[in-house]
Design a protein around this nucleic acid. Structure first.
Length: 279
DNA sequence: AAAGTAACCTGCCCGC
DNA sequence: TGCGGGCAGGTTACTT
């Protein structure tokens, strides 16, 4: 679920709420999620007493800096959520199934890692260490370094279909299934086109739509589908789902031309498109 | 070496 | 009402 706009929304929420707070207690019950090269006990001891100093995002990863020079890295997987609770909410004795880690600050404020499917992962690395999976991520699509020319370069000689290309984290970091579908629909490009077959004009359009879709989704706080699985750290839903054009709409008609929206699998992922509008 | 697919999980929805 | 199958925003590791 969480793609770049959702992770960015979580990042902003964390920046507003947990920077400067000291960790006084940690409860961690699901060692499977913790990918640090040490035990659950060591994970806890490296957090105790630390202060969060900044939060960054790389692709779909959150990088939480601490004053100990360790970095807490979080990937939310499909169903991971970070939930921030103030003392007031804590006092309501809020409990939820699938809470795996609780980071407790003074005044009983908490940051909870909740993950139904447990596909999410958490690491602690020291400042000098590098996490290979982050090192190998592709370009950040909202950074100035990502230009039309750069996109042109990436699609050259690329034999992947364009949908797989967009979701390839080693090419562009952060685009997942929902936004890949939306970007291609708004670009009028068929998801099965070879990346290398795009014309210069199509690359320009695609470039603009990547930026537009991701930026607008961030403005709206990400996408919360009907099942409500994604929420920001305070439990608010993202509103981009209200303006989704194509993802999950296989039983309705194209909002542009009215023809039926088609649904296929591309690389085992649900793919929605309009064969009249997308060539 | 690119490309397919099995694996990791829970929960929900659908058809029988 | 219940059971089984299929499906879900993601990624890695192992096959061909």
């Amino acid at each position: 679920m969480p793609e770049l706009p959702e992770v960015e929304t979580v990042k902003r929420g964390l920046r507003e709420n947990i920077i400067g707070k000291k960790i006084i207690k940690v409860n961690s019950n699901t060692p499977q999620i913790i990918k640090t090269p040490f035990s659950n006990e060591e994970f806890i001891s490296r957090l105790l007493g630390a202060i969060f100093t900044n939060i960054n995002r790389r692709g779909k990863y959150l990088l939480i800096d601490m004053n100990t020079n360790d970095i807490l890295i979080v990937h939310l997987g499909m169903s991971g959520r970070l939930i921030y609770q103030t003392e007031e909410q804590v006092n309501k004795n809020y409990l939820e199934k699938h809470n795996h880690i609780e980071i407790i600050f003074s005044k009983s404020e908490k940051l909870i890692y909740n993950d139904t499917r447990r596909f999410g992962k958490i690491w602690i690395v020291s400042n000098s260490e590098k996490l290979s999976r982050i090192e190998s991520l592709g370009i950040e699509p909202l950074e100035p370094i990502f230009t039309t020319d750069k996109l042109y370069e990436l699609v050259q000689n690329n034999n992947q279909n364009i949908k797989k290309f967009l979701m390839d984290q080693k090419k562009i970091a952060g685009i997942g299934n929902i936004y890949a579908n939306e970007i291609l629909f708004l670009s009028s490009i068929h998801p099965l086109r070879k990346a290398s077959s795009l014309t210069e004009e199509e690359i320009k359009i695609l470039y603009r739509k990547i930026k537009n879709v991701l930026n607008q989704a961030i403005e709206l706080g990400g996408t919360t589908m009907a099942d409500g699985s994604y929420q920001d750290i305070k439990g608010n839903r993202g509103k981009y789902g209200d303006i989704i054009k194509i993802y999950g709409k296989n039983k309705s008609n194209c909002p542009v031309c009215g023809n039926p929206i088609e649904s296929i699998k591309v690389e085992k992922r649900s793919t929605f498109f309009c064969s009249f509008c997308q060539k």
